[in-house]
Amino acid sequence: MRTLVFATNNQHKLEEVQAIVGNNFALRSLKDIGCEADIPETGTTFEENASQKSRYIFDHFGLDCFSDDSGLEIDALNGEPGVYSAHYSGTRDTEANLQLVLDKLGSNPNRGARFRCVISLILNGKEHFFEGSVEGTITTGRSGKSGFGYDPVFQPLGYKETFSEMSAQEKNQISHRGRAMEKLVEFLNQIQ
């Protein structure tokens, strides 16, 4: 079984991604490798931020690793919150971030949005990128108890439920991270 470092300490993300990759790979978190650094995310794109994190791990620990950067892009807000999704309100308070999105949208009928995820994989010193996205709409209020972040207000196209109302398995099959991870896993399976 191949071991890869996933450059995160977000337990929700780690569980979500481990469920997607299954038993083919053992994932290790930043905590697992003893990385306590606050890895910079100063890029202006998902690609730049994902690359910064994976390069940091490779440069400092010499381990094969991957990282992701993802976020919500809302058409009526000119793509916001985008790369600032995790701290849109100026804090990492997910409730405050979600409320700011609802407040900014107000009663605007244009509620089109997408979740995008970019993964940077560094394997044997070489970097590879994988991207996934899912189109949907922002609901006018919260629905559901599972998931995290903006999941309670994101309804993917073709579904009547928000991500928070779906099971983890349902969400992973169509989510932006799930789609990007599928591409990553396919790539890794081809080179094993």
Rank of each mutant, 00 (worst) to 15 (best):
residue 7 A to D: 00
residue 9 N to H: 06
residue 13 K to A: 05
residue 13 K to W: 13
residue 13 K to E: 09
residue 14 L to A: 04
residue 14 L to C: 00
residue 16 E to S: 07
residue 16 E to C: 09
residue 17 V to I: 15
residue 18 Q to S: 14
residue 23 N to A: 09
residue 25 F to A: 01
residue 25 F to M: 05
residue 26 A to H: 14
residue 29 S to C: 02
residue 29 S to K: 04
residue 31 K to W: 14
residue 34 G to Q: 05
residue 36 E to N: 06
residue 36 E to W: 08
residue 37 A to F: 03
residue 39 I to D: 06
residue 40 P to E: 12
residue 41 E to K: 05
residue 47 E to F: 13
residue 49 N to M: 04
residue 51 S to Q: 02
residue 52 Q to A: 10
residue 54 S to W: 02
residue 55 R to I: 01
residue 56 Y to V: 04
residue 57 I to L: 13
residue 57 I to W: 09
residue 58 F to L: 05
residue 58 F to A: 02
residue 61 F to Q: 02
residue 62 G to T: 04
residue 64 D to G: 00
residue 64 D to N: 11
residue 65 C to D: 08
residue 66 F to N: 09
residue 67 S to Q: 09
residue 69 D to G: 04
residue 69 D to M: 11
residue 70 S to D: 07
residue 72 L to M: 12
residue 72 L to R: 07
residue 72 L to T: 00
residue 72 L to I: 01
residue 73 E to P: 11
residue 77 L to I: 11
residue 80 E to M: 15
residue 81 P to T: 12
residue 82 G to L: 10
residue 83 V to P: 09
residue 84 Y to C: 13
residue 87 H to T: 03
residue 87 H to A: 03
residue 88 Y to D: 13
residue 88 Y to Q: 11
residue 88 Y to W: 06
residue 90 G to K: 04
residue 91 T to P: 11
residue 93 D to M: 09
residue 96 A to V: 07
residue 101 V to M: 08
residue 104 K to Q: 12
residue 105 L to W: 00
residue 106 G to S: 05
residue 108 N to W: 15
residue 109 P to D: 03
residue 111 R to E: 07
residue 111 R to V: 15
residue 111 R to P: 12
residue 113 A to M: 12
residue 113 A to Q: 03
residue 114 R to P: 03
residue 116 R to S: 11
residue 116 R to C: 14
residue 117 C to E: 10
residue 118 V to L: 04
residue 119 I to N: 11
residue 120 S to E: 15
residue 120 S to D: 14
residue 120 S to A: 15
residue 121 L to P: 02
residue 122 I to P: 00
residue 122 I to N: 00
residue 123 L to E: 13
residue 124 N to D: 13
residue 125 G to L: 15
residue 125 G to T: 02
residue 127 E to P: 06
residue 128 H to E: 08
residue 128 H to M: 09
residue 133 S to H: 08
residue 134 V to F: 06
residue 135 E to W: 14
residue 136 G to T: 11
residue 137 T to Q: 06
residue 139 T to N: 05
residue 141 G to R: 03
residue 142 R to P: 02
residue 142 R to T: 12
residue 143 S to A: 04
residue 144 G to A: 00
residue 145 K to N: 00
residue 149 G to C: 11
residue 149 G to D: 08
residue 149 G to S: 07
residue 149 G to Y: 15
residue 151 D to H: 12
residue 153 V to K: 02
residue 154 F to I: 12
residue 155 Q to V: 09
residue 155 Q to R: 15
residue 157 L to D: 12
residue 157 L to M: 04
residue 157 L to P: 00
residue 157 L to S: 10
residue 159 Y to A: 08
residue 160 K to T: 15
residue 160 K to P: 01
residue 160 K to V: 13
residue 161 E to F: 09
residue 162 T to M: 01
residue 164 S to P: 10
residue 164 S to C: 03
residue 167 S to M: 04
residue 172 N to H: 10
residue 173 Q to K: 15
residue 176 H to V: 13
residue 176 H to W: 00
residue 177 R to S: 05
residue 177 R to W: 14
residue 178 G to F: 13
residue 179 R to S: 08
residue 179 R to Q: 14
residue 180 A to F: 03
residue 181 M to R: 00
residue 182 E to W: 08
residue 182 E to G: 02
residue 182 E to L: 07
residue 182 E to C: 01
residue 186 E to R: 06
residue 187 F to A: 00
residue 188 L to E: 06
residue 188 L to T: 08
residue 188 L to W: 03
residue 190 Q to N: 12
residue 191 I to E: 08
residue 192 Q to M: 10
residue 192 Q to W: 09
residue 192 Q to E: 10
